[in-house]
Simulated scan of single mutants.
Amino acid sequence: MIKSMTGFGRSENTDGVHNFTVEVKTLNHRYNDTIIKMPKHINYVEENVKKIIKGKISRGRVEVYISLEYEDDSNIDVKVNVPLARAYKRALDEMTNELFSDEKVTIEHIIRMPDVIKTKRLEDDENQIWLCLEKALEEALDNTVEMRIREGHELSKDIRERTLKIKKMIESIEKRAPLVVLEYKEKLKERVEELLDNEYKLDESKLANEVAFYADKSNITEEIVRLYSHINQLFECLDSIEPVGRKLDFLIQEMNREVNTIGSKSSDIEIGKTVVEVKSELEKVREQIQNVE
């Protein structure tokens, strides 16, 4: 069953210290384009994240948003720059004595000054970080893939229905093609006899040669056979569990080319109308296929 390239998934996981939230959004893209946004201090897990994504999603734009919150402050180190605080106090005392003699400098004034208090997060256990993130990432990706499968089912249904419609139109062209040659023969014979005005005998051999030439020139058997082959391959792709978006796109291009050839070879009005209808359906199928993984 084919998959859509659009989907969304979200998951959370905590180990008592780290609380991860992962959101995955996938969009249409010709290739596999992955964008990951996460806290800078855990960038060392990026390659692991990409590896898991590629194992589950082979085509499309994948946007992954990872946020991390800590359950407590046990891994935060707080330091006070005492020399800097003294320097600020002397400067503030001097300023208040000169300008605001009734004011007093308090600790609240000091701690508001830049770089007096600095916080630094202690080193995390990288393995613990990854184990917690991995679970949230796997679940978010699974939710995304599940949504892509559901949408793929609807895409497959629509593509299949339109392709069956195209097949019926091709069958009508196939049935019509032999009649076109016969009609051409009768019209040509009538026209020649009209021009000769029954004064000369019609040369049946020359007429047969002309009809044979027309039949060969307008023969669309090869195009019809290839179209049926492409249609069968398309149905096989719809039942495949492998990514087939690019192959489907190629098949539609080939089908469109064969239909154009039929249109250029045939001068029959009915076949011409059917060709236009087939091309219209092929374009609708092509638009749907742009969203297939």
Results as ranks from 00 to 15, higher is better:
1 M>K: 03
3 K>T: 10
4 S>I: 11
4 S>M: 07
4 S>F: 06
6 T>S: 08
10 R>Q: 02
11 S>N: 05
12 E>A: 05
13 N>M: 14
16 G>N: 07
20 F>K: 05
21 T>W: 05
23 E>F: 08
23 E>P: 09
33 D>S: 11
34 T>N: 04
35 I>G: 00
46 E>L: 00
50 K>Y: 05
51 K>H: 07
52 I>Y: 02
53 I>N: 03
57 I>H: 02
58 S>F: 09
59 R>V: 03
64 V>H: 03
68 L>M: 15
71 E>M: 08
88 Y>M: 09
89 K>F: 04
90 R>T: 14
90 R>F: 14
91 A>I: 01
92 L>V: 01
94 E>H: 05
101 S>T: 13
101 S>N: 08
102 D>W: 10
115 D>P: 06
117 I>L: 14
124 D>G: 09
127 N>C: 10
131 L>F: 00
141 L>E: 01
141 L>I: 14
142 D>P: 01
145 V>N: 00
148 R>H: 01
150 R>T: 11
152 G>F: 13
152 G>V: 09
162 R>Q: 01
172 S>E: 15
172 S>R: 13
177 A>S: 13
181 V>K: 00
182 L>Q: 13
187 K>W: 02
188 L>P: 00
189 K>P: 00
190 E>H: 00
192 V>F: 09
192 V>M: 15
198 N>V: 07
201 K>Q: 15
207 L>F: 08
207 L>I: 08
210 E>L: 10
212 A>P: 04
216 D>R: 07
216 D>Q: 12
224 I>A: 01
226 R>G: 02
226 R>D: 12
228 Y>G: 00
229 S>D: 01
233 Q>L: 13
236 E>W: 00
243 P>T: 09
243 P>M: 03
245 G>E: 05
247 K>F: 00
247 K>T: 08
248 L>I: 05
252 I>G: 04
253 Q>H: 12
253 Q>T: 13
255 M>K: 11
256 N>T: 11
256 N>R: 01
256 N>F: 02
257 R>L: 12
259 V>K: 10
263 G>M: 10
280 S>E: 12
280 S>T: 01
280 S>Y: 14
284 K>H: 05
284 K>S: 08
284 K>C: 05
285 V>C: 10
286 R>F: 04
288 Q>A: 13
289 I>W: 08
